[in-house]
Design a protein around this nucleic acid. Sequence first.
DNA 1: CCCGGGGCAGAAAGCGCTTACTATGGGAGA
DNA 2: TCTCCCATAGTAAGCGCTTTCTGCCCCGGG
Lengths: 347, 347
Amino acid sequence: MAVTLADVAARARVSAATVSRVLSGNYPVAEATRARVLAAVDELDYVINGPASALAAATSDLVGVLVNDVADPFFGIMASAVQSELGSEKLAVVCNTGGSPERELTYLTLLLRQRAAAVVITGSAVETPEYAAASAAKVGRLAANGTQVVLLGRPASAAPEGSVFAVEFGNREGGRRLTEHLISLGHRRIGYVAGPADRTTTRHRLEGHRAALAAHGLGGDAGELGRLTVHGPYTRKSGYDGALELLDREPGLTAVVGSNDAVALGICAALREKGVDVPGEVSVAGFDDLPFSADATPALTTVRLPLQEAAARAARLALGREESPADGRYMVPAELVTRASTAAPRA
Amino acid sequence: MAVTLADVAARARVSAATVSRVLSGNYPVAEATRARVLAAVDELDYVINGPASALAAATSDLVGVLVNDVADPFFGIMASAVQSELGSEKLAVVCNTGGSPERELTYLTLLLRQRAAAVVITGSAVETPEYAAASAAKVGRLAANGTQVVLLGRPASAAPEGSVFAVEFGNREGGRRLTEHLISLGHRRIGYVAGPADRTTTRHRLEGHRAALAAHGLGGDAGELGRLTVHGPYTRKSGYDGALELLDREPGLTAVVGSNDAVALGICAALREKGVDVPGEVSVAGFDDLPFSADATPALTTVRLPLQEAAARAARLALGREESPADGRYMVPAELVTRASTAAPRA
DNA sequence: CCCGGGGCAGAAAGCGCTTACTATGGGAGA
DNA sequence: TCTCCCATAGTAAGCGCTTTCTGCCCCGGG
């Protein structure tokens, strides 16, 4: 039925081994023979059988990409960059984990099953010992299998020693810069709508925020910090709800920081509905600098993360196309982007 | 090194065949035996070898998803919905074609090579005979291989007869409704920033637009239609440039329709820069109703396409989990969403 | 003129699984 | 009590490729 290597070999009057060698190109084949084989491939319209080749070679050309949800531009941009970097040699298997550790583990198992060449795990990790252990075990198993694992936007500490690369985001730094910007504008009471409490990204961004406050003697006690902080998912709705809650708790605040741009947009929407002018009465800032942030009104002050470059690098590391530093970790810098949503508070 | 079926079989004191049958579950196995096998699998931490199983069974559990670019929410949403619908049985291989027919064909070949269980091809097709033929050939080959092909947002006519399902978008209808809305508001000179000229989606949306104009005697001759239409990619920049061009050609226009939301946002940006009030002086409308459209200022009047539902259905059809109508085509309706960016023109 | 070696090509042994096809053992019907 | 048959389990033949090990042939050096 289907054309196989053997058919091509027969037509080219060579052995199957030779055809295989011509196609994978890692063995000397005389020019004339190669041409004959290529011609046969062409004439028969031969398409190599991936599974068979993966079985024999003990590795496939699949690269897993774990994301919370590709529909979220934050992840979509990274997934896209990884995919593009793979070229047409490798295929990207995109898995939506929805941020669930269980699903993450499930997908890692599926990728293990596929003998994936590499896996890029994006997004923050959940910070519980059980999950850390389970995750480390899976990653270790993948590595043992020859699958290169790369963490993208997740601390290297979330993985077992060695054999794993990490491209980390300057979340702490970015969070600090953003809040310093607000402080330098004159803000003193700053609300924060954070992400889910047990995520590395949430913690890092929040730590940066608080470090900036502390550096300016604005931290207050834990109680006050707590009062000015609410947690929720990284969604617009969370920002909306969070802003209302914060306004309720602390009517005097002059700025609210969102854990990401979607949250910030939700905050803006809530303020708008309450008739609070942004940035006239309350400044708002986000994080990530996703494309839509520039078109929002007011345009969002935020922290830019070079997602595309970072993801492309992660892909190259995954494919072994780029040397990694000795400790296997890169830190990608976060850059403050000031736009119209932040301004000095009213006197 | 790695644990294989045989190891599990030995430990469970059964034959490899029995283990295979327990795992794939399509053959009667006595309860006691099954339990023993499952226990062995668990104890040995066995993970089945995907390629080997795909080779033997002549089908893999990969489902291809072709998109222009997953980073674009329009495609990201569909890819996400497909992926989610697959559950944890099948894996989604996401391929960015960048809208290029060549890359589309390349990826189809790669998916053929992988013996993919199904392929969902999203986005508009290029309307040239050569491409149509090449594409049809590839799709035919996939179908012959047992790969179910589903077109999502692309007319069924873009594929060979039978063996292919299509979930089509009501682009023509949506385009018509949108323009009728503008006409009913009183607009008479309406500009249109269309997509690339040779795409099915572009053509359908434009046809809908012109049908509405014609129905109200506003079409004018071909020259006039041409003067009020510019083509470009489906990007924000295209909208920006297009709006400037249209304004230049026809200062008297009171509304501009974008081929999608990103284009519409670009149009808004251009008008804003020119000091033209939206919708006061010129109304603007988009297409797709992507999430950011509601947060733009002014919030965009647009046409909603139920991307998620459509993609989920495409996935179900791909997996054979949903019966398809006799002709294999579904049409998903487009719904007009009126928001702040459109209003009656100045008297 | 003979021998050694390098450059290519072939033979064949798997890779780990699926799935006909073939046993086997007892219970049901005669 | 003897068949017959169903429910299970096992046997073994691949699936289509990669790759190690061999072997052949021809060239250059001695």
